[in-house]
């Protein structure tokens, strides 16, 4: 047995991987050294046997299907538009619900004073300045019974219009009790409230839509908008699904 370097040289020589000079040197050794020649013949025979190994035919086709490689059907360009509109409409719809739920509470919670001056301004027909607020604030703060009186008065005058008025008066009753400084209540006369309420009550029958307007004022986003967004979302979703289904059918 020759050393491994010789075996490697013989193997490379068989495959034509030696340089011409190395090949010539090895050929002379093979012809002169019987041991090298024997090893050479052995390697050559082993190589020939392997090369004559009968090739086996593949027992089946290995062609790939789209499912195998996880390919998805090509979708039309409009698909991405409808996908976007579905998502956009859904997000907007959720935002409208959130807005209607949170914002009214936020307004009532933060600025309970705001409705009161507004009511006072409406009542007195003076929309500017802080004067009405000064009148209204103490009235609401110190005359807590007004909350209970107001509905009663309203019911006397115009029973059908009590809910809006009651709703307006109720926040007033919840004003902080800390605003009880006597200096701020020189004009806290129930008549001041009585008069505007009476005015409101008197005008109520002439404009029957007003109470509904008051209810809508609490829902910042109208329901019709929400229905519209819902319709857009559902229609876009259906079109999107139809496009995907037809693309898959074509692909098959």
């Amino acid at each position: 047995m020759k050393n491994f370097r010789d075996i490697e040289q013989l193997s490379a020589y068989l495959d034509g991987q030696l340089s011409p000079s190395d090949s010539a040197r090895l050929e002379s050794r093979i012809s002169s050294d019987p041991e090298i020649a024997s090893a050479f013949n052995d390697i050559r025979a082993a190589r020939s046997i392997l090369r004559k190994l009968p090739p086996r035919k593949a027992p089946r086709n290995f062609t790939l299907t789209r499912q195998m490689v996880g390919l998805k059907p090509p979708l039309p360009r409009s698909y991405s538009f409808f996908r976007f509109s579905t998502a956009f409409a859904t997000i907007l719809l959720m935002l409208t619900f959130a807005a209607n739920l949170i914002l009214p509470n936020l307004f009532f919670g933060m600025g309970a004073a705001a409705p009161a001056p507004a009511a006072a301004q409406d009542a007195y027909g003076m929309g500017e300045g802080s004067g009405p607020a000064l009148f209204a604030m103490p009235a609401a703060a110190t005359e807590a019974p007004a909350a209970t009186e107001a509905p009663a008065m309203a019911m006397e005058i115009a029973p059908t219009e009590t809910p809006p008025m009651a709703m307006e008066a109720a926040p007033m009753a919840t004003l902080p009790a800390t605003v009880t400084n006597a200096d701020l209540v020189p004009t806290a006369d129930p008549l001041l409230l009585e008069e505007p309420m009476a005015k409101e009550a008197a005008t109520a029958p002439e404009s029957p839509a007003q109470p509904q307007g008051g209810a809508e004022r609490q829902a910042l986003i109208p329901v019709t908008w929400q229905i519209g967004l819902l319709s857009i979302g559902v229609i876009s979703l259906l079109i999107m699904l139809a496009l995907r289904h037809s693309a898959r059918q074509k692909w098959k």
Partner: peptide, 11 residues
Amino acid sequence: KSRLARARLRL
């Protein structure tokens, strides 16, 4: 080259 020579030798 090395692996092929060793493999042929063993075969």
